[in-house]
Design a binder for these strands. Structure first.
Lengths: 119, 119
DNA sequence: CTTACTAGGTAAGATTATATTACCACTTGT
DNA sequence: ACAAGTGGTAATATAATCTTACCTAGTAAG
């Protein structure tokens, strides 16, 4: 998802997630029962987000609260013992997600991957 | 972490987590920069919790936002065959691919997707 | 070029929630 | 009994959000 290390604030992540979900502020506002300016101010960092709103936004955008609040590992040092970390992360996944992930892995291995493209 | 099926609301989980951490409302209030009645009302479900406050509470109680918001995924049993398969596949990845994958995992965690879409 | 439509940012007054102080009851220890 | 600690709740002053409105930029047609 975010692959951009400069997206480090919650409101920026929420904005990014909305765009990734292909939704407008107005659509999100309607889903949340808010007015559009409220969504605008939230994404500008000028308005707080309640825990309930955060929960709904995570459902809408299909992201996790951990990630929105910056509790998920965002950057991994290239020379870490990454396999063990990956194993720990895998254990946290739901079975369906793990199945999806296996497909991602397969796709990665079979691609020639000239680098640079986002997931 | 979990466990009491009757603890199904966020404020109840926050109260439970505070007690598990062995803290009083007054101590938490001081750590959060709030007054004690605010903590009391939060745990009674009469006051909203902002995302920032939620984040701080998770740090203080050593819990995850996913759990507080009821999005904690079922974990896969450590001896799940799919987990071993995934680990073997991960070992075949190039380092850069693995780094990218870890980010995907972080974003994917606990997202509720019954939609069965392809990746 | 003009019109219309969509998306998004922002201002101002009305409305609502929170902050702050205070007082209450209960418990524990002196 | 007393004091200290914990937690629930009320009243009002304060701060936040809501709601409406107006503005700009971009885009697609006429």
């Amino acid at each position: 998802m975010t692959v951009d290390p400069q997206v480090n604030s919650m409101h920026a992540r929420l904005k990014e997630a909305r765009k990734m979900a292909g939704l407008s502020q107005g659509q999100v506002a309607k889903l949340l029962g808010l007015h559009r300016p409220s969504v605008s101010e939230i994404e500008a960092g000028n308005r707080r987000v309640s825990a309930d709103e955060l929960s709904q936004l995570c459902d809408i955008y299909d992201i996790s609260p951990d990630w929105v609040l910056g509790k998920s590992p965002e950057t991994i040092s290239p020379d870490d013992p990454k396999l063990e970390l990956a194993a720990r992360e895998l254990a946290k996944l739901k079975p369906d997600d793990l199945s999806r992930l296996l497909k991602v892995i397969a796709a990665m291995r079979s691609s020639n991957d000239t680098g640079g493209e986002k997931i």
